[in-house]
Design a protein around this nucleic acid. Structure first.
Lengths: 210, 210
DNA sequence: ACGAATATCGTACCATGAGTACGATTTACT
DNA sequence: AGTAAATCGTACTCATGGTACGATATTCGT
């Protein structure tokens, strides 16, 4: 019955939260399943009732992260539906997402091709959310193209996909090389990202003023 | 004496080659140190004479990869010193680098900040090669800016760094999501990369024709 | 309230793989 | 030949993911 369901969800959530905190603190490889059990205050056996493996836990966190990613982008575009406001809102959302949880950010670029083995339903879900995000950005691009008469050289889907790759590339680099950026360029990583986003905007609209 | 040195280098090289092949075949996590020892035809003990740990082996391969990366970019710019020919040559070199060895490509974006612990000399070397690559691209950008009167909005260093991040972002995505790209956009990953590189070029030169 | 099903626990395991110890053996230098 | 260094092989330790299983607590139907 539903009560059981909810309790079960509650337990899974507790385990995932504990795992997330530990992963964040010490890194994934440095966190043992016993650590997670202890922190979440369950026995190890119970952990394995709710999750098939440590990998399974990681995948669920990855999924959670992708869903948050999607929500943040939806919210960004709802609050800033115009152009290029929406574009910068997406960039900003992704940058904040990195702060929230750097561990799974790389996964955004999606090491995951659609798994044949449909039993691995988490992986399928992760994949699907990735596609959904891309579709949302695609819609936005389409809208902008129509509203501002922007001439694209390829399809909106391709543009949105490329844009997505570039944005996450900049965010990843900015965070990983923060010290170098400050030392060699004398600017903060935030400034570096901002400049990068402005540069990227030209890939859509060229030098045109709107 | 020098002979000893050379023999030592030879052994290290053999071990690294074996490791590289196995990593490529089965992935890093799936390759055991015993596997490497067997393939390279050394005893496990000897492996640990030449390398401190499996991680150490990975780092040396990472360094090798970065050096190859640098050489390929130098060569690309020597053969195509003009603009935007040089730019596309860099893109092409990086795409080929991914084919050669996808495993360490991600490391390009350099999870490695300058390590304080200077005893970890491999890491320092990796870091330095990364900086060198960036300086080479910076020089190229400077030259182009001077020759073609390109107006940059930030410093050449920053532009080259951003460009580097974007190029590797596109390559990573194109390879990881090859199947999706073919299915959803009906083009090859090579075509996707090419289109992306063309788009990116606008971040430098806007809509200007040269 | 009682008995059955279910969830949780704890402890003791297994298997794997990184890394070490150490004595035996081979190779190289003089 | 004799010594020093390199290499080997075997047998270990240790950490960790994952399992087995019986004991205990909790929940639910009746």
């Amino acid at each position: 019955m539903a009560k059981k369901e909810r309790l079960s969800e509650f337990n899974r959530g507790n385990i995932l939260s504990a795992a997330k905190a530990l992963f964040h603190e010490k890194g994934i490889a440095q966190t043992t399943v016993d650590d997670i059990a202890k922190k979440a205050d369950y026995s190890k056996s119970t952990i394995y009732v709710y999750f098939a493996s440590k990998d399974d836990i990681c995948n669920h966190l990855h999924l959670e992260h992708m869903q948050l990613h999607k929500e943040m982008i939806v919210k960004a575009l709802r609050e800033s539906p115009d152009f290029p406001g929406g574009y910068f809102a997406i960039c900003d959302a992704m940058a904040r997402l990195y702060e929230t949880n750097p561990l799974f950010f790389d996964g955004i670029l999606g090491e995951i091709e659609l798994p044949q083995n449909e039993s691995e339903s988490v992986l399928v879900q992760i994949y699907n959310v990735g596609e959904e995000i891309n579709e949302i950005i695609e819609e936005y691009i389409k809208k902008c193209v129509a509203a501002y008469n922007i001439p694209l050289e390829t399809t909106p889907l391709q543009v949105s996909f490329t844009l997505w790759a570039n944005i996450s590339g900049i965010i990843t680099l900015a965070n990983r090389k923060e010290a170098y950026i400050r030392k060699a360029m004398g600017i903060s990583k935030e400034q570096f990202m901002q400049d990068g986003f402005v540069m990227l905007l030209k890939t859509i609209k060229g030098d045109a003023e709107l």
